[in-house]
Each structure stands twice: as structure tokens, then as C-alpha cells.
Nucleic acid binder design. Sequence first.
DNA 1: CCTTTGTTTAACCAGATGGTTAAATCATGT
DNA 2: ACATGATTTAACCATCTGGTTAAACAAAGG
Lengths: 202, 202
Amino acid sequence: MAQERNTEELIIEAAKKIFVKRGLAGARMQDIADEAGINKAMLHYYYRSKEKLFEIVFNEAFSKVLGRLGNILNQPMPLEEKIRTLVENYIANIAETPYLPIFVLNEINQQPEMMVKRVSSQPAFPDMMLFMKEIIEAGKKGIIREVSPVQLFLNIVSMCIFPFVARPLIQGIFLQDNVQFDMLIEERKKLVGDVIISWLKP
Amino acid sequence: MAQERNTEELIIEAAKKIFVKRGLAGARMQDIADEAGINKAMLHYYYRSKEKLFEIVFNEAFSKVLGRLGNILNQPMPLEEKIRTLVENYIANIAETPYLPIFVLNEINQQPEMMVKRVSSQPAFPDMMLFMKEIIEAGKKGIIREVSPVQLFLNIVSMCIFPFVARPLIQGIFLQDNVQFDMLIEERKKLVGDVIISWLKP
DNA sequence: CCTTTGTTTAACCAGATGGTTAAATCATGT
DNA sequence: ACATGATTTAACCATCTGGTTAAACAAAGG
């Protein structure tokens, strides 16, 4: 073998970088090859087409953005603590790969059908449904205000993800440098929890 | 003149449709020409290049998404009423052109520099700054809890815009048809106000 | 009618892009 | 050393894409 390290992995790594940065339509196979330091023909040798390569990258990104929700959701915990932990962990997770959300959301909007089946086969899916049942029951018991679990979920995810999606806007309007943005995000780990909990107080 | 109605406007209308649907990288000049029912060369006759045409479309979209905030923000009103009105109107405005936000956000992420100057020259910009001052003062007076005006702003905009950006995901996970989605949005006009106000209660 | 000016069309072009091919190189088991 | 199968390369191809050009056409003024 001439390869220093696994070529397949090298390609995927490069493809990730280019696809996430430029999107499916904007990404060039040549750029991916350059990024991986290999010949363009090798991309087609290992992964038949641009679409095949993209699908692998997208699947992983999709799981990363949506999947991490499940980890926290199914752990036994008081509801308030669970929500606060969820928000904190989720924001921290997104912050590790801040460009994934806009990539995933944009591609999903480009090809909505593509993603419909993908959703229900997502490992986090059952946990989300259980969590929503928990919300309804807690509402009936009077532990929290009675709210639509879908709306609650939307509120949480909106406030966690949107700042990353709108990052250039936020930095352009309110802040100058990346340090201040990181501080803003850090502050949100607690703040978003506050917002949700105060709304849920009966 | 052979034109039935203003050709320039016809082109812009078609360009809007294609650019918003496919993005800058995914849009084809031929598709825009077809959509407008004219020859491809006419695009270059009226607007020199793809980039020039795109810039016009993007500017209008950008103003539509961000600009509508100003209208409500500078009207004299009790703070709570102002926030509720803001949320209601903003969601209604976005709902009229639900695909604009993801388009704008994605293109901004593709070329963050492009947008930095555009922001401060936005008519809504001064109103936003005044609103943020109002929040600080209301906090000091004890009318509301003391919160970061940037975070407040982010929370509002997140919960208003994100559902449209994540629409295919939401419909895939929770709902089936467009009617249910519209109901979800309708419900949010009041709900998002509730969330914000309950958080701001001192 | 003819000139001038603005508008529209068809044909064309150079470069980019995704993809292919055939030959070369390498690693390994015999 | 040699045969074999996997890996890598360079050259190539068909198509697409943004953009250009020259000529046709229309409208208005003289």
C-alpha cells in the first residue's frame, strides 16, 4: 500500500469540509480531491459519484445535529433538571461543529423528500416521542403549565440552534470578534434554560 | 416596443423565484430565462452578470427579512404590548415569504463579508438599537427583569424565524400536511409572546 | 421612407465540471 | 521472481454554464 493512512477516511474528511462549507451545489469534486491531496479520479474509485459521497457526509451531519438530543432525553431525571441539562449539552454539542446546522437545514430545504424517511429511522426519534409524552403528563399533573409538547420542543431547539445559523448576522449587528460570540453562546447555556422553565412554571 | 409588460421587472421576478429556491450556486441563468419566458441573452442585456442579478434579489430579500422589525419597534407602546405586537407581526410577515429566511441565512454564511456593511445601512438598524436601550432602562426601573438586550433579541428572532427554516424537518417529524403547519405557526403568534413575557416578569 | 435608438433572438465560445479509461504502480501470497 | 488483485495516476470526454456577438426587429422622429 502506498497510502500513509486510510484513503477512504481521508476522502470523507475532505468531502465533509468542502460540502459543509459550500453545500452540495457549490462543492467541486476537484476541491475535495485537492483538500484530500489526491487525484480526482480516486473520488470516483472509492465513491461512485458526487451524490453518493454527499449522502455519506450528509447522513453523518444529520445524525450529529439531531441525534445528540436523544442521549439526554431518556435519562431518568426531574423534568426541570432534564430540560436544563438538555439545553446545556445540546448547545455545547452544536458549538463543537457550528457550521453543521446551516448546512443540514439548507440541504433539507433543497430536497425535502430526501429526508422524510431518514427522520423516523433516527435513533433519537423514540426518545423524543417519549419526552413529549412526559411533557403532557407533567402538564396534567400540574407539575408544569399545560403546553403543546411540539411547541415546547420547537422553542428549545430554536433558541439552541438559531444563533449558530445566524452567526454572521449576529456578529455583524451586535458584536465584533469571535471571543464575544463564544461568550454569548456560553451565557445561553443557562439563559435558554431560564426562559423555558419560567414559561413552564404553572 | 415588443414587450407586453416591463421586461426588467419580469426578469427580477423570475430571478427571485429561482435564486430563492436554489441558492446562488444552484441557480442556472437558463432556468431564470425560462421562468421569465425570455432568451438567456436578455438577462445579460439588462443585468450584466449573474452576480449583479443576484445582488439585487438578495438585497431585497435581506431587507424583507430584517427590515420589517423596525416598523413596530419604534412605535410608542407599553413594553409588553410592544413585544407581543412585534412577535405577532414579524411571524405574519415571515409567513408571507416563508422561504426567504433560509435563503438569506445560507447565502450570508457563504459570504459573511458581503453582508457586514449591508447591516448598518439597513433602515431598521437604528430602531433596533433604540429598542435595546429601552430594554436596559426598563430593567433598571424594575419594569422587567434585567436581561441582556442582545439575548432577548436573539430569543425573539430565534423563535420567530427558526420554524420556517426547519419547516421540512418539523413536518417530517411531527406533522403531515401544510394545514397543520400553518396552525402551528398561527398558534406561535401568541405563544412566543407568552414565553418572552413570562421570562421578563421581574 | 429612412435613420436612429432601444429590444430581442439565434448561434456561438471558452472554461468549468462530473465522470471515464487505460495504463502504471504497489503490496502480497506463492 | 512472478502472478494477482488492489490502488493510483494522467489524459481524456461529453456536457453544462456563464457570457458574447452579430444580426434581426420594432418604434419613434424627421
